[in-house]
Design a protein around this nucleic acid. Structure first.
Lengths: 342, 342
DNA sequence: CTGAAAGCGCTAACAA
DNA sequence: TTGTTAGCGCTTTCAG
């Protein structure tokens, strides 16, 4: 096997303890001794065995990253950009990521199975639901965690984009362009983010003096397929499309919606305007680029990781923090005045 | 802390060893005893501490997954779909994934730092280069590994799509449509996959009796930005665009190329045809959908993982396997006859 | 400033 | 079939 600390200790004529301290830069080791030990370690190309080290101090230097549940996948563009942010901060601090196979809904076991005993020091979760059962579970196990997404349970750390404000912005913009029949495709029911975006939509309509028409609130699930099918359903039967604009709760659904519109010969934005939410990179590849409410996705990931590390380092419950990051409307590819105005 | 094996042992009135065996379904434990121990463990909600277990047996049940080097990122769509495949197989077999912060080129240290001492049981790598230094490094450390992508070092396990064949297909198709000036955007120099795709391009041209024109071979780097800039460069100065069709070595570059063409008012496929490579999901979101050489991306990931696990289970060097998976041309959104033919 | 010794929680000979 | 005894490789009191 590899060389061990005991071996280094013998080479240096000191005890394992001293080697351990020297390598950890413990100030209680005489500088020269420390110098010497480090040099020998380098010469032997020695590095402490992390598993053993972690076992001894009861930590792992690993963070579990839970990804969105079906029907979303790990390959969801939003999740990936976010993951990028999370990983960069984690790695800067010497942590690794563990991506467990967790599908919520199969009972706590799935989660405990991978996260419970000494696998990870903390957990990063996404998409809190209303009264999310995972919260109690993690708290019970005394496991530090942070959500990407506002929770409705107090005392929980989370980081989120301004969902309500973003939706509000989007509707305002569509109104400004002259739209009066603005449909909304919602996110998966039960997710707090979906609810907040819906709230923003409602509030904007109300403030603008428009009726909140249930027939224009369409159920989606945050997937492209969901956006596609929802719009297809409302295109059935040859009736006139009931809206001049669509606000989709995320970009993937906006993309699906646009596909569905194209398939029946409706042009975007000439016939129907579409605004998404998130600002995933893929949206910029489209022609025209997707109009969307841009979240600072990468930054959200970095912030989530930072908040978790704060908890780990400043000792539990000390750094429990909540943060809402601003969003903004970008691009103008898929919006225009409604047909009757042009 | 959590309950330990010693505790369970005491509760059952047996030794830790027996508990350990019972939980591992060792046949040398009397059925009733085993039954009883398992029951008690369940009652106490006990699960063995994996770190300790791993330390004791000198393994980790974790696989390191190295992702592509800069300028590609962990959020590269191809990589993520592939990762999805890898993870599904790994998890089925009880392994976790460790995504280390490795950037090749900073010396072996970056890699050894995270993979060397008891961190992982095996490693999955992507994008082998010509004479990839990582191979010798891993072999020296006696670490099982598999590459996503053919290597030019014999005796190394790898799984790959048919790069040369796919490129060949793409060029054939463009020729069939009437194109004679077919440009190619290459992948990052030094990557074997990039070379093989280039070889397929060359072979197709040669067999078709077309000259291999160096001016039509443009250097790319597998990123969208790379594809974009390469095409922009060839659009400088108002001269006529030198090709009627572009074969991009991957989809991301194809997407970038299309953007660049659009920016100067060239239509795809009316003015220029474009074919990509990979078949990432994002390509299907475009309108029209990206024409591409479809690789079985998810399957590649599953296969890579399977090959590695074979090595781990059948004992080293026993299951070293190499596999090339078939690819196929899909979609027809971005190809058409060249302008002069229509 | 340094060393001895006791674990961290589990596994694996080796005995019994 | 079960228990005893050493570790796995490192950290960390507690003495000195």
């Amino acid at each position: 096997m590899k060389i061990s600390m005991a071996e280094i200790a013998r080479q240096c004529g000191v005890s394992k303890a001293t080697v351990s301290r020297a390598l950890a830069d413990d100030p209680r080791v005489k500088p020269e001794t420390k110098e010497y030990i480090k040099e020998v370690a380098k010469r032997f190309n020695y590095e402490p065995h992390p598993i053993a080290s972690n076992l001894a101090r009861g930590r792992t230097k690993t963070i579990g990253v839970v990804f969105p549940a079906a029907p979303r996948t790990i390959a969801d563009p939003f999740f990936l950009e976010y993951l990028n942010g999370v990983s960069s901060i984690l790695f800067e601090h010497g942590y690794s990521m563990l991506l467990p196979q967790v599908s919520w809904g199969e009972g706590d076991s799935t989660m405990s199975q991978l996260l419970a005993p000494g696998r990870v020091d903390g957990v990063v979760l996404t998409e809190p639901r209303v009264d999310d059962g995972r919260i109690a579970f993690l708290q019970k196990n005394n496991m530090p965690f942070v959500f990407l997404g506002q929770t409705n349970v107090p005392g929980v750390a989370w980081v989120d984009g301004d969902n309500e404000g973003g939706a509000y912005l989007a509707v305002q913009e569509l109104y400004r362009l002259g739209h009066r029949r603005i449909a909304m495709i919602t996110g998966e029911r039960g997710l707090i983010a979906a609810q907040n975006r819906l709230r923003g939509y409602r509030r904007a309509l109300t403030e603008l003096g428009l009726p909140v028409n249930q027939d224009l609130i369409w159920a989606g699930d945050f997937t492209r397929e969901g956006g596609y099918h929802t719009v297809r359903n409302h295109l059935q039967g040859g009736a006139k499309f009931p809206a001049t604009a669509i606000f989709a709760s995320n970009d993937l659904m906006a993309i699906g919606a646009i596909q569905a519109l194209h398939e029946v010969g409706l042009q975007v934005p000439e016939d129907v305007s579409v605004i998404g939410f998130d600002g995933i990179e893929v949206g910029r590849y489209l022609s025209p680029p997707l109009t969307t409410v841009q979240q600072p996705i990468n930054e959200l990931g970095r912030e989530v990781a930072a908040v978790l590390l704060e908890q780990l380092e400043k000792g539990r419950r000390k750094g429990v923090r909540q943060a809402t990051l601003p969003v903004q409307l970008v691009n103008v590819g898929n919006t225009a005045a409604p047909p009757k105005f042009s």
